[in-house]
Amino acid sequence: MENGHHAVRQLRYWPAVGSPHGVEVLDFAALRSMDTQRRRVLPQRPDFHVLALTAAGVGTIEADFLAYRLAEGSVVWIRPGMVHRWSDIDACEGPLILFRPGFLPGFTTAEATAPACWQLDQQRLELALLAAEHLGREHDSAARSPHVASPALLSHLLAALLLRALPDAPARTDPAPAGNRSADVFRAYRAAVEEHFTDWHHVADYARALGYDVRTLTRATRAATGTGAKAFLDQRILLEARRLLAHTDLPVAGCARRLGFRDVGNFTTFFRRQAAMPPAAWRTAYGAAGTRDA
């Protein structure tokens, strides 16, 4: 990475030949064959989504400081910007779907609420694998014989796969219907947070920019994620702080400046309040854990 992110590889979405529609279908075996140098085991940060279904085998993945054990039925959803590493997928089999942000705009709420990894029972796994196979076949057909309807077909099939694979929480994970004002408000707030969280640390800043009041943003965010607008913003800042501390050699003061804090004292107070320890201690603890895992 640039600007101090020396330990994390930035992954850009470069569609393969025949995959011009913002989605690509491959599998664990293809990932291994393309990565003969095993760079997948090092921290990386994509600017696209990766949805993986484990049809067989066992393995491990680490995503934003949490380790997940993969087994038959495991689903992994890596969102754009998520720092992760495929610690061990040598024995894993199953499909991987890569897609651009915005390819399924109606799934903004699901992106915010679904975990990075969860488990499907056998029946749901079989149905999800069928949905992934259908998407893969349509993807191959679109690559061979592009059609004006190909993007819409791929988008609908990907939506069907996600609906089939998402964890059970219908009120929180179903795609928001068009015209749902609360979902639209949250979608706008989430996009603004992603763009401005290093500069704007108060919900009122976003309310003014978006033309809503703070209570409206809070209600919409709580409806979508189960937490308020301020907590949502603070967690986004905290996540980036952890990424900087773990994956760069920036001093704590440099991390504070990168995140828009006026001085290191304010940053330390914020981090201690959110993480229950000061940033330097968290960096030391994470480094020690990484040494033990190595």
Rank of each mutant, 00 (worst) to 15 (best):
R38C: 02
A114H: 02
I61R: 04
P43Y: 08
L26Y: 07
I89T: 14
D27W: 04
V83S: 07
A91G: 08
H49L: 05
L26W: 04
R100W: 10
A55T: 06
A131S: 13
I78W: 06
D140H: 13
L135S: 05
L153M: 13
C92L: 15
D121Y: 10
G81F: 04
D64F: 02
P101R: 04
R40H: 10
W77F: 12
R100M: 11
P43V: 12
T113Y: 08
P101I: 11
V148H: 11
A16P: 02
R124K: 13
T60C: 00
F107T: 01
E111Q: 10
G102R: 00
L42C: 00
V23M: 02
H139E: 13
G59D: 07
M34Y: 10
Q119W: 09
C117I: 05
H49Q: 11
L135R: 07
P95M: 08
I89F: 06
L96R: 07
A29C: 07
R39M: 09
Y68Q: 10
I78S: 01
P46G: 03
A30P: 00
F65L: 14
R85S: 09
S19Q: 07
A110C: 12
L104P: 01
G73D: 11
G106A: 14
H147D: 14
V17M: 05
R38T: 01
E24H: 12
A128R: 06
H21V: 09
F103I: 04
T109Q: 08
G102C: 06
L98T: 04
R79D: 02
V23F: 00
L125A: 03
W86F: 13
Q44H: 14
A110G: 13
E138V: 14
A67W: 13
L98F: 15
Q119D: 05
L42G: 05
E138L: 15
P151M: 08
T54E: 00
Q119G: 00
G81C: 01
A116S: 13
P101F: 03
H49D: 06
L153V: 15
L96Q: 13
G136T: 05
R45T: 04
I78R: 02
L120H: 01
H139I: 02
G81H: 07
H21D: 09
W118D: 01
R144H: 13
H134S: 09
R137W: 15
D64A: 10
I97N: 02
V148D: 12
P46V: 14
A128P: 09
G73L: 03
Q44Y: 04
A143I: 12
A142Q: 08
D90T: 03
V17L: 10
G102Q: 05
P15N: 14
A30Y: 07
L66A: 11
S33V: 03
Q37W: 10
L154H: 03
Q123A: 12
M82L: 09
T109C: 04
A52L: 10
L153Q: 11
G81A: 01
R85F: 02
E24Q: 15
R144I: 10
R38F: 05
T36A: 03
C117D: 01
